[in-house]
């Protein structure tokens, strides 16, 4: 019904967190003075008893959330991805992950989506950095539908988690009844020639590339790896065994993100070639979002070309 509609995934978060908060009085929002743009205004108005705003003080916010979690509350710390990862990374490590507390860091402005704000606001290292901390779960939903389902799952599943949403609008690709499980890839298609593993706002690109390749008779396995940690190892190995060729696509530095996670598994346990498409270890700049993706080869054309190259076509 909604398929194709353009909507930023931060909107999905803003709606679902209200539903979660109404269902469970322990669900809290800890805002860091950007609730407006991270879409928590509705939560703030409707559930003031479950709402805290610590001002522009990310490190304090992470610590306050940890304290709340020790009493059984389920705080969602809400900010931009670059700050919610890097600015408070040590607090996340020491006070959230080490004691394994039930804190969720829920961030808008993931990847290159804060496009015209420039490099200072674009988050290209966040998922990789947080992936290296024990006990942390790292998630980026592909669209509005996936966001709502995964936010619900996050609220209902114990443990530290980082969720990353888009600032800019991306198309809805899933039906309302699609199911999502943390740590389990969504297999969008199955084919024997090549596998495309994408996450977040790049799943839509993988989908378009898949359609183009299939039209040329190439069998494509397309996985939405919304959770990069814990990685769905079985899904990766199955895709590797079936196709022997994997392309990863992500709106994140090619170092230490989805591509790296897939390579870690494949190099140890499979016989397949992996090509990584993502941010080319360079800072962004102010420019339209689609242009920033293009500067890094994160495009449908490049996925198709890479697939053909791997297939020797």
């Amino acid at each position: 019904m909604m398929a194709g509609k353009l909507i930023a995934t931060r909107e999905g978060f803003g709606e679902e967190i209200v539903t979660m908060g109404k269902q469970n009085k322990d669900v809290y929002v800890v805002d860091i003075d950007i609730g407006k743009s991270c879409k928590t205004v509705k939560f703030r108005c409707e559930l003031p008893e479950q709402y805290i705003n610590v001002g522009i003080a990310e490190q304090n916010g992470a610590g306050v959330a940890a304290g709340l979690a020790t009493t059984g509350k389920i705080p969602f710390v809400v900010t931009y991805a670059v700050f919610g990862s890097l600015r408070m990374v040590e607090q996340i490590r020491q006070e959230i992950c080490y004691p394994n507390l039930n804190v969720k860091i829920a961030c808008s402005h993931g990847g290159l989506t804060p496009a015209n704000d420039g490099a200072s606001h674009q988050a290209i290292e966040d998922m990789g950095v947080l992936r290296t901390i024990p006990n942390m779960t790292v998630i980026m939903p592909a669209d509005y539908v996936a966001t709502k389902k995964l936010v619900k799952a996050a609220a209902e599943t114990y443990g530290p988690m980082f969720l990353r949403f888009t600032r800019d609008a991306v198309p809805v690709i899933y039906d309302e009844d699609q199911e999502f499980e943390i740590g389990k890839a969504v297999k969008i298609s199955e084919g024997k020639d090549i596998a495309i593993i994408a996450n977040g706002d790049t799943v839509r690109l993988g989908l378009e590339a898949k359609n183009l390749l299939e039209a040329e008779g190439v069998g494509v396995t397309l996985l939405d790896m919304h959770t990069i940690k814990p990685l769905d190892v079985d899904a990766v190995l199955e895709a590797a065994a079936k196709t022997g060729r994997i392309i990863t696509v992500e709106d994140h530095n090619i170092i230490n993100g989805l591509g790296s996670a897939v390579c870690e598994v494949v190099s140890e346990e499979a016989n397949a070639k992996v090509k990584r498409i993502g941010v080319q270890d360079q800072f962004g700049m102010s420019a339209p979002y689609e242009r920033l993706l293009a500067m890094n080869g994160i495009t449908v054309e490049n996925i198709v070309a890479t697939a053909k190259e791997m297939l020797g076509r």
């Binding site: 015209n116 704000d117 420039g118 490099a119 200072s120 606001h121 700049m285 102010s286 420019a287 339209p288 242009r291």
Partner: peptide, 14 residues
């Protein structure tokens, strides 16, 4: 040229 591609006037000062 503020915030445009290639601009010296980035969204935040560079």
């Amino acid at each position: 040229t503020l915030r445009q591609e290639g601009a010296i006037l980035q969204g935040h000062p560079c």
